[in-house]
Design a protein around this nucleic acid. Sequence first.
DNA 1: TCGCACATGTAACGTGTTACATGATTCA
DNA 2: TGAATCATGTAACACGTTACATGTGCGA
Lengths: 184, 184
Amino acid sequence: MKGKAPTNLECALLGLLHGQPQSGYDLRKIFATTAMGNYSSSPGAIYPALKRLEARGLVTSEIDSTNEMRPRKVLTPTARGKTLFRDWLRADFSAEDIDRRFDQLMLKFAFHWVLDDLGESHDFLAALASGLDVSVRSLEAQRNMFPEQMPIQPRLALDQGIGQTKAAARWARKALSQIKEEMS
Amino acid sequence: MKGKAPTNLECALLGLLHGQPQSGYDLRKIFATTAMGNYSSSPGAIYPALKRLEARGLVTSEIDSTNEMRPRKVLTPTARGKTLFRDWLRADFSAEDIDRRFDQLMLKFAFHWVLDDLGESHDFLAALASGLDVSVRSLEAQRNMFPEQMPIQPRLALDQGIGQTKAAARWARKALSQIKEEMS
DNA sequence: TCGCACATGTAACGTGTTACATGATTCA
DNA sequence: TGAATCATGTAACACGTTACATGTGCGA
């Protein structure tokens, strides 16, 4: 029924093209200069990824020759691409996703505006917040099981993980209340 | 002068072997059951990584045949492996490392006990804290440049990044004070 | 004219993922 | 007897990294 899961980079590209059809070069600049910079930006990653998206029929390309001697290849998501992207945004997530693919969940949330339905974002954040609580409890349990003579650094490193997760949970609840406000 | 940079997984394995010489299977269990679980744990990653470490002369293997019919291959870091690992722990880091390889920095810190010198951990955390402050300022600058009509979700997603970074900075300072206390 | 930004790509390489393979031991 | 755990591996594959290749337009 479904094709294989796209990579984070592919989803980021597809999402950006939802916002504005543009060229590979434009997309590279976004990754190079904004907070999305944790994604590649290297041509060796971007151009093949765009080619894959096109091969799967998720985007179409069109040569923009308004500046004749310097053609740009502008990519636009297709109907299939839009459907698949929305499905990806809506796919529900597991505890595993929260613990090990949190960045992917944030990428999804950042593109939630595509759904144009604050209710979806609300549910997403609510599920995320309670999932994060579970993670916190599990990490704290591990911390309590640390042997007495364990050196201080690994303990502190685990504290960092707990702090990150707690901060994420706090953020999720605060964002949730902002979304609620926006919805009313 | 230096060989190529080892991967995070290789460093994690090498660090764990500093704590206790053990087999690939033991290491897999650690990744599968503890908070270090963000690293692989799959045999297709671990055994090749251990083989690479051995090929580079950073660990040696010895067959443990106390239980005859079920031999374990126990890995131990060599002198070269220990030196390289300490160098890796001490290598100074850039803003780039903080923004995009924070997990690697945390991995290093978790193994700082190997250095057996709280002063090093102190300096590490101090540098980290001020580096994180820089990151926070840069992210907040980006947030301020967001256009007015931008939908709420990307804004919130960026807030999440800012919150994470601030939490990390708070943690670093708290950890710093605990290290100082331990030193006195 | 020198270098930089524009603009798109390819090729080699390394590494992690997934799936498979093998075989012994322990326990229900 | 069959399933789970112990224990070590290999092979195909996909993806990102790094480095290279090519050529235009523009400003100093």
